[in-house]
Design a protein around this nucleic acid. Structure first.
Lengths: 155, 155
DNA sequence: GTCGGGGTTGCCACCGTGGGAAGGTCAAGC
DNA sequence: GCTTGACCTTCCCACGGTGGCAACCCCGAC
Protein backbone atom coordinates (compact mmCIF):
# COMPACT_ATOMS: atom_id res chain seq x y z
CA UNK A 1 0.00 0.00 0.00
CA UNK A 2 3.06 2.18 -0.04
CA UNK A 3 1.60 5.05 1.90
CA UNK A 4 3.25 8.28 0.91
CA UNK A 5 5.17 10.32 3.40
CA UNK A 6 6.86 13.69 3.31
CA UNK A 7 10.53 14.19 3.75
CA UNK A 8 10.47 14.44 7.52
CA UNK A 9 8.68 11.15 7.79
CA UNK A 10 11.26 9.64 5.46
CA UNK A 11 13.99 11.07 7.66
CA UNK A 12 12.49 9.40 10.68
CA UNK A 13 12.00 6.13 8.86
CA UNK A 14 15.45 5.98 7.29
CA UNK A 15 17.78 7.77 9.64
CA UNK A 16 19.11 9.90 6.80
CA UNK A 17 18.90 13.66 7.23
CA UNK A 18 16.65 15.72 4.96
CA UNK A 19 19.70 17.53 3.77
CA UNK A 20 21.36 14.35 2.68
CA UNK A 21 18.20 12.94 1.13
CA UNK A 22 18.00 15.96 -1.13
CA UNK A 23 21.71 15.68 -1.74
CA UNK A 24 21.47 12.05 -2.79
CA UNK A 25 18.59 12.90 -5.07
CA UNK A 26 20.63 15.64 -6.69
CA UNK A 27 23.59 13.32 -7.08
CA UNK A 28 21.37 10.76 -8.72
CA UNK A 29 21.75 8.09 -6.04
CA UNK A 30 18.01 7.96 -5.65
CA UNK A 31 15.35 8.86 -8.18
CA UNK A 32 13.74 12.28 -8.18
CA UNK A 33 10.93 12.12 -5.67
CA UNK A 34 7.34 12.60 -6.69
CA UNK A 35 5.97 15.93 -5.59
CA UNK A 36 2.71 17.24 -4.22
CA UNK A 37 1.01 20.12 -5.99
CA UNK A 38 2.86 22.41 -3.60
CA UNK A 39 6.21 20.92 -4.49
CA UNK A 40 6.70 18.82 -1.36
CA UNK A 41 8.66 15.62 -1.95
CA UNK A 42 6.79 12.35 -1.46
CA UNK A 43 8.34 9.06 -0.48
CA UNK A 44 7.11 5.49 -0.39
CA UNK A 45 8.35 2.42 1.42
CA UNK A 46 10.67 1.51 -1.41
CA UNK A 47 12.39 4.86 -1.13
CA UNK A 48 12.85 4.47 2.58
CA UNK A 49 14.27 1.07 1.85
CA UNK A 50 16.84 2.53 -0.50
CA UNK A 51 17.71 5.25 1.97
CA UNK A 52 18.39 2.71 4.66
CA UNK A 53 20.52 0.80 2.24
CA UNK A 54 22.50 3.95 1.64
CA UNK A 55 22.86 4.69 5.30
CA UNK A 56 24.14 1.23 6.02
CA UNK A 57 26.62 1.41 3.20
CA UNK A 58 27.85 4.79 4.39
CA UNK A 59 28.24 3.47 7.89
CA UNK A 60 30.41 0.78 6.38
CA UNK A 61 32.55 3.46 4.83
CA UNK A 62 31.56 3.02 1.20
CA UNK A 63 32.04 6.09 -0.95
CA UNK A 64 29.04 7.55 -2.75
CA UNK A 65 30.37 6.22 -6.02
CA UNK A 66 30.54 2.73 -4.67
CA UNK A 67 27.13 3.10 -3.12
CA UNK A 68 25.73 4.12 -6.46
CA UNK A 69 27.18 0.97 -7.98
CA UNK A 70 25.84 -1.16 -5.14
CA UNK A 71 22.42 0.37 -5.55
CA UNK A 72 22.40 -0.45 -9.24
CA UNK A 73 23.24 -4.03 -8.44
CA UNK A 74 20.74 -4.11 -5.66
CA UNK A 75 17.94 -2.97 -7.94
CA UNK A 76 18.93 -5.40 -10.66
CA UNK A 77 17.01 -8.61 -10.14
CA UNK A 78 19.47 -10.54 -12.24
CA UNK A 79 22.70 -9.21 -10.77
CA UNK A 80 25.48 -11.75 -10.62
CA UNK A 81 26.47 -12.02 -7.00
CA UNK A 82 30.07 -12.04 -8.14
CA UNK A 83 29.88 -8.36 -8.90
CA UNK A 84 28.53 -7.53 -5.50
CA UNK A 85 31.23 -9.60 -3.93
CA UNK A 86 33.91 -7.92 -6.00
CA UNK A 87 32.81 -4.48 -4.87
CA UNK A 88 32.69 -5.56 -1.28
CA UNK A 89 36.11 -7.14 -1.49
CA UNK A 90 37.57 -4.07 -3.07
CA UNK A 91 36.18 -2.03 -0.26
CA UNK A 92 37.53 -4.42 2.28
CA UNK A 93 40.97 -4.05 0.77
CA UNK A 94 40.50 -0.31 0.98
CA UNK A 95 39.62 -0.54 4.64
CA UNK A 96 42.65 -2.66 5.23
CA UNK A 97 44.92 -0.24 3.46
CA UNK A 98 43.62 2.59 5.60
CA UNK A 99 44.00 0.54 8.72
CA UNK A 100 47.59 -0.18 7.78
CA UNK A 101 48.29 3.50 7.32
CA UNK A 102 46.75 4.33 10.65
CA UNK A 103 48.81 1.62 12.20
CA UNK A 104 52.00 2.97 10.68
CA UNK A 105 51.25 6.45 11.99
CA UNK A 106 50.54 5.05 15.40
CA UNK A 107 53.77 3.10 15.46
CA UNK A 108 55.83 6.08 14.36
CA UNK A 109 54.29 8.21 17.03
CA UNK A 110 54.28 5.77 19.88
CA UNK A 111 57.98 5.33 20.42
CA UNK A 112 58.88 9.01 20.70
CA UNK A 113 55.90 9.62 22.94
CA UNK A 114 56.99 7.03 25.43
CA UNK A 115 60.44 8.52 25.49
CA UNK A 116 59.08 11.93 26.41
CA UNK A 117 59.29 12.72 30.10
CA UNK A 118 56.11 14.73 30.19
CA UNK A 119 57.17 17.12 32.93
CA UNK A 120 58.04 20.79 33.16
CA UNK A 121 61.34 20.48 31.38
CA UNK A 122 61.26 21.49 27.75
CA UNK A 123 63.13 18.46 26.48
CA UNK A 124 61.15 15.97 24.51
CA UNK A 125 64.04 14.61 22.52
CA UNK A 126 62.46 11.98 20.42
CA UNK A 127 59.51 14.12 19.51
CA UNK A 128 61.86 16.79 18.33
CA UNK A 129 63.82 14.34 16.31
CA UNK A 130 60.55 13.24 14.86
CA UNK A 131 59.78 16.82 13.99
CA UNK A 132 62.95 17.23 12.03
CA UNK A 133 63.27 14.07 10.07
CA UNK A 134 65.39 13.44 7.01
CA UNK A 135 67.46 16.49 7.90
CA UNK A 136 71.03 16.17 6.87
CA UNK A 137 71.97 16.93 3.30
CA UNK A 138 69.37 19.70 3.04
CA UNK A 139 67.41 19.81 -0.21
CA UNK A 140 65.54 16.56 -0.02
CA UNK A 141 64.19 15.33 -3.30
CA UNK A 142 60.51 16.11 -3.95
CA UNK A 143 59.35 13.23 -1.85
CA UNK A 144 55.68 13.11 -2.54
CA UNK A 145 54.68 9.90 -0.82
CA UNK A 146 51.67 10.69 1.23
CA UNK A 147 49.18 9.11 3.55
CA UNK A 148 45.49 8.84 2.93
CA UNK A 149 43.23 9.05 5.94
CA UNK A 150 41.92 12.36 6.99
CA UNK A 151 39.40 13.10 9.66
CA UNK A 152 35.82 13.05 8.42
CA UNK A 153 33.02 15.45 9.18
CA UNK A 154 30.50 12.99 10.52
CA UNK A 155 29.35 12.96 14.06
CA UNK B 1 74.06 32.38 6.72
CA UNK B 2 70.46 31.61 6.01
CA UNK B 3 70.63 32.04 2.27
CA UNK B 4 67.30 33.15 0.91
CA UNK B 5 65.46 31.02 -1.55
CA UNK B 6 62.32 31.47 -3.56
CA UNK B 7 59.28 29.31 -3.15
CA UNK B 8 60.32 26.62 -5.58
CA UNK B 9 63.59 26.14 -3.77
CA UNK B 10 61.64 25.90 -0.52
CA UNK B 11 59.39 23.32 -2.12
CA UNK B 12 62.37 21.23 -3.08
CA UNK B 13 63.96 21.62 0.32
CA UNK B 14 60.85 20.86 2.34
CA UNK B 15 58.76 18.50 0.26
CA UNK B 16 55.71 20.71 0.72
CA UNK B 17 54.02 21.96 -2.46
CA UNK B 18 54.02 25.66 -3.28
CA UNK B 19 50.28 25.56 -3.13
CA UNK B 20 50.32 24.27 0.41
CA UNK B 21 53.09 26.62 1.51
CA UNK B 22 50.92 29.55 0.52
CA UNK B 23 47.98 27.87 2.13
CA UNK B 24 49.79 27.41 5.43
CA UNK B 25 50.90 31.02 5.32
CA UNK B 26 47.33 32.14 4.78
CA UNK B 27 46.14 29.90 7.61
CA UNK B 28 48.76 31.40 9.88
CA UNK B 29 50.71 28.17 10.41
CA UNK B 30 53.85 29.87 9.21
CA UNK B 31 54.70 33.56 9.30
CA UNK B 32 54.13 35.76 6.27
CA UNK B 33 57.18 35.35 4.11
CA UNK B 34 59.45 38.26 3.31
CA UNK B 35 59.09 39.44 -0.25
CA UNK B 36 61.38 40.69 -2.97
CA UNK B 37 60.62 44.03 -4.56
CA UNK B 38 58.66 42.14 -7.17
CA UNK B 39 56.55 40.42 -4.55
CA UNK B 40 58.22 37.01 -4.70
CA UNK B 41 58.24 35.14 -1.41
CA UNK B 42 61.61 34.55 0.23
CA UNK B 43 62.46 31.72 2.59
CA UNK B 44 65.36 30.94 4.87
CA UNK B 45 66.57 27.74 6.47
CA UNK B 46 64.35 28.24 9.49
CA UNK B 47 61.28 28.37 7.29
CA UNK B 48 62.26 25.19 5.54
CA UNK B 49 62.70 23.66 8.94
CA UNK B 50 59.19 24.60 9.95
CA UNK B 51 57.81 23.32 6.67
CA UNK B 52 59.44 19.96 7.20
CA UNK B 53 58.03 19.89 10.66
CA UNK B 54 54.60 20.47 9.21
CA UNK B 55 55.02 17.83 6.59
CA UNK B 56 56.06 15.26 9.15
CA UNK B 57 53.15 16.09 11.38
CA UNK B 58 50.72 15.83 8.49
CA UNK B 59 52.16 12.48 7.53
CA UNK B 60 51.42 11.41 11.07
CA UNK B 61 47.83 12.45 10.59
CA UNK B 62 47.77 15.53 12.79
CA UNK B 63 45.12 18.08 11.88
CA UNK B 64 46.20 21.60 10.98
CA UNK B 65 44.84 22.82 14.30
CA UNK B 66 47.00 20.39 16.18
CA UNK B 67 49.95 21.19 14.00
CA UNK B 68 49.52 24.86 14.81
CA UNK B 69 49.59 24.00 18.51
CA UNK B 70 52.64 21.79 18.06
CA UNK B 71 54.42 24.54 16.16
CA UNK B 72 53.77 26.99 18.96
CA UNK B 73 55.24 24.57 21.44
CA UNK B 74 58.11 23.81 19.15
CA UNK B 75 59.03 27.45 18.86
CA UNK B 76 58.72 28.01 22.59
CA UNK B 77 62.08 27.42 24.15
CA UNK B 78 60.54 26.96 27.55
CA UNK B 79 57.70 24.63 26.60
CA UNK B 80 56.90 22.04 29.22
CA UNK B 81 57.34 18.69 27.56
CA UNK B 82 54.14 17.60 29.28
CA UNK B 83 52.13 19.69 26.87
CA UNK B 84 53.78 18.17 23.87
CA UNK B 85 53.20 14.75 25.25
CA UNK B 86 49.56 15.50 25.97
CA UNK B 87 48.95 16.57 22.40
CA UNK B 88 50.70 13.53 21.05
CA UNK B 89 48.77 11.23 23.33
CA UNK B 90 45.50 12.82 22.37
CA UNK B 91 46.35 12.25 18.76
CA UNK B 92 47.32 8.69 19.47
CA UNK B 93 43.96 8.13 21.06
CA UNK B 94 42.37 9.64 17.99
CA UNK B 95 44.27 7.29 15.74
CA UNK B 96 43.20 4.40 17.88
CA UNK B 97 39.58 5.45 17.76
CA UNK B 98 39.72 5.62 14.00
CA UNK B 99 41.42 2.30 13.79
CA UNK B 100 38.69 0.78 15.93
CA UNK B 101 36.03 2.18 13.65
CA UNK B 102 37.77 0.83 10.61
CA UNK B 103 38.04 -2.48 12.33
CA UNK B 104 34.35 -2.53 13.14
CA UNK B 105 33.46 -1.76 9.55
CA UNK B 106 35.74 -4.49 8.36
CA UNK B 107 34.24 -7.00 10.73
CA UNK B 108 30.70 -6.09 9.75
CA UNK B 109 31.55 -6.46 6.12
CA UNK B 110 33.66 -9.56 6.27
CA UNK B 111 31.10 -12.07 7.41
CA UNK B 112 28.51 -11.36 4.73
CA UNK B 113 31.17 -11.26 2.07
CA UNK B 114 32.41 -14.71 2.90
CA UNK B 115 28.87 -16.01 2.77
CA UNK B 116 28.39 -14.65 -0.74
CA UNK B 117 28.83 -17.24 -3.46
CA UNK B 118 30.30 -14.86 -5.96
CA UNK B 119 28.97 -16.56 -9.04
CA UNK B 120 26.35 -15.81 -11.69
CA UNK B 121 23.42 -16.33 -9.41
CA UNK B 122 21.89 -13.17 -8.08
CA UNK B 123 21.66 -14.34 -4.49
CA UNK B 124 24.01 -12.81 -2.06
CA UNK B 125 21.87 -13.32 0.98
CA UNK B 126 23.96 -11.94 3.72
CA UNK B 127 24.90 -8.88 1.79
CA UNK B 128 21.26 -8.19 1.17
CA UNK B 129 20.44 -8.64 4.78
CA UNK B 130 23.24 -6.25 5.49
CA UNK B 131 21.74 -3.78 3.10
CA UNK B 132 18.46 -3.79 4.90
CA UNK B 133 19.33 -3.72 8.53
CA UNK B 134 17.12 -2.86 11.44
CA UNK B 135 14.11 -3.40 9.21
CA UNK B 136 11.16 -4.73 11.08
CA UNK B 137 8.89 -2.27 12.77
CA UNK B 138 9.44 0.43 10.14
CA UNK B 139 10.00 3.94 11.48
CA UNK B 140 13.28 3.53 13.25
CA UNK B 141 14.14 6.24 15.71
CA UNK B 142 16.45 8.96 14.40
CA UNK B 143 19.53 6.89 15.03
CA UNK B 144 22.31 9.36 14.45
CA UNK B 145 25.30 7.37 15.51
CA UNK B 146 27.86 7.82 12.85
CA UNK B 147 31.35 6.81 11.88
CA UNK B 148 34.24 9.14 11.38
CA UNK B 149 36.74 8.10 8.78
CA UNK B 150 36.37 9.34 5.30
CA UNK B 151 38.81 8.98 2.48
CA UNK B 152 41.31 11.78 2.22
CA UNK B 153 42.58 13.55 -0.85
CA UNK B 154 46.26 12.93 -0.46
CA UNK B 155 48.28 10.85 -2.85
C1' DG C 1 -6.11 35.46 10.58
C1' DT C 2 -2.30 33.90 12.96
C1' DC C 3 1.02 30.76 14.67
C1' DG C 4 4.17 26.96 14.58
C1' DG C 5 6.17 23.40 12.33
C1' DG C 6 7.19 21.85 7.76
C1' DG C 7 8.53 22.31 3.32
C1' DT C 8 11.42 24.46 -0.61
C1' DT C 9 15.65 26.53 -2.75
C1' DG C 10 20.20 28.39 -2.58
C1' DC C 11 24.51 29.82 -0.74
C1' DC C 12 28.47 29.43 2.62
C1' DA C 13 31.43 26.85 5.70
C1' DC C 14 34.71 23.19 7.13
C1' DC C 15 39.43 20.40 5.67
C1' DG C 16 43.32 19.36 2.49
C1' DT C 17 44.69 19.31 -1.93
C1' DG C 18 45.08 19.95 -6.81
C1' DG C 19 43.99 22.40 -11.24
C1' DG C 20 43.97 26.24 -13.96
C1' DA C 21 43.48 31.04 -15.64
C1' DA C 22 45.38 35.63 -16.12
C1' DG C 23 49.06 38.34 -15.56
C1' DG C 24 53.92 40.12 -13.79
C1' DT C 25 59.24 39.04 -13.58
C1' DC C 26 63.56 37.41 -14.35
C1' DA C 27 67.64 35.44 -16.55
C1' DA C 28 69.62 33.46 -20.54
C1' DG C 29 70.30 33.45 -25.51
C1' DC C 30 69.85 35.66 -30.07
C1' DG D 1 67.32 45.45 -27.89
C1' DC D 2 63.73 41.40 -27.88
C1' DT D 3 61.99 36.73 -27.26
C1' DT D 4 61.54 32.59 -24.73
C1' DG D 5 60.66 29.79 -20.97
C1' DA D 6 60.71 29.17 -16.22
C1' DC D 7 58.92 31.04 -12.42
C1' DC D 8 56.16 34.02 -9.59
C1' DT D 9 51.72 36.23 -8.11
C1' DT D 10 46.51 36.22 -7.04
C1' DC D 11 41.98 34.32 -7.46
C1' DC D 12 38.50 30.93 -8.38
C1' DC D 13 36.79 26.02 -8.84
C1' DA D 14 36.74 21.12 -7.78
C1' DC D 15 36.39 16.89 -4.86
C1' DG D 16 33.61 14.44 -0.42
C1' DG D 17 30.14 14.71 3.11
C1' DT D 18 27.84 17.44 6.17
C1' DG D 19 25.86 21.27 8.65
C1' DG D 20 24.03 26.04 9.04
C1' DC D 21 21.39 29.85 7.72
C1' DA D 22 18.31 32.82 5.06
C1' DA D 23 14.28 33.76 2.53
C1' DC D 24 10.32 32.27 1.24
C1' DC D 25 5.85 29.10 0.62
C1' DC D 26 2.28 25.81 2.77
C1' DC D 27 -0.73 23.57 5.73
C1' DG D 28 -3.40 22.43 9.76
C1' DA D 29 -5.08 23.80 14.27
C1' DC D 30 -6.83 27.41 17.13
Amino acid sequence: MTRSMNIVAAVRASGVSAKMIRHYEERGLIAKARRTAAGYRLYGDADVHALRFIRQARDLGFSTQHIAALLDLWRDRRRPSAKVKALALEHLRDLERKAAELHAMKATLEHPVHGCHGDDRPQCPNLEALAMPVEGGATAQPVRRRGVLRQGTRR
